[in-house]
């Protein structure tokens, strides 16, 4: 098959682009794909470098694999669909992690050692995160204190929780 664009070199890069549900197929030669320099060639490259990951991702659609129902098929911010993600192996924007959260969890369990971050937290934007994590911990402790009738400690905890909630502006 010849390249759709230049009609000179053989088409070696093949992909399907889906825009608002409209499917169009592309068959380009290496240099035309590169020249386009947009999502297409990047997607093709990413696929090439990321076959392993794609393999993992595609397992989800294979029969017998209980994938969670696709609640969000498209990221509300960047418009990427989950099936595009499985082809490209890359998310479109930071918000994709929220948009595809239900399907992300089993994936992370396979490719990572856990599904929650325990490392570095950014200093500035991380302040809120730290406060929220503290709050979570204090609330858990409060529940424990109440169920074991340690009311003095519970009162202390309640004050601390109030203070943190105020800092978060809740």
């Amino acid at each position: 098959m010849l390249c759709q664009r230049c009609q000179q070199r053989p088409a070696t890069v093949h992909f399907t682009k889906i825009v608002n549900g409209d499917k169009s197929e592309y068959h380009l030669c290496e240099s035309c794909a590169k020249e386009k320099g947009d999502l297409f060639s990047k997607a093709a490259q990413a696929f090439h470098f990321n076959q392993l990951l794609s393999g993992l991702l595609n397992m989800e659609s294979s029969p017998g694999f209980n994938a969670p129902p696709a609640t969000a098929n498209r990221c509300s911010r960047c418009g990427m669909t989950y099936s595009q993600f499985t082809k490209v192996g890359r998310f479109g924007c930071p918000h994709c992690y929220e948009s595809f959260a239900p399907r992300l969890e089993p994936l992370l369990r396979r490719i990572q050692s856990s599904t929650s971050h325990t490392g570095k937290v950014p200093l500035r934007s991380g302040e809120t995160v730290k406060v929220k994590k503290n709050l979570e911990r204090l609330r858990r402790e409060l529940q424990e204190c109440i169920s074991t009738e340690r009311f003095e400690r519970a009162a202390q905890l309640r004050d601390q929780i109030r203070e943190l909630e105020q800092r978060l502006g809740e």
Partner: peptide, 25 residues
Amino acid sequence: LEESLTYAFHERYGYLTACPTNVGT
């Protein structure tokens, strides 16, 4: 850099990256 750049960071998943093989740290 973070003093002037606002990074994409998620409470649960950590630093967000284009590929989930890099997410977290």
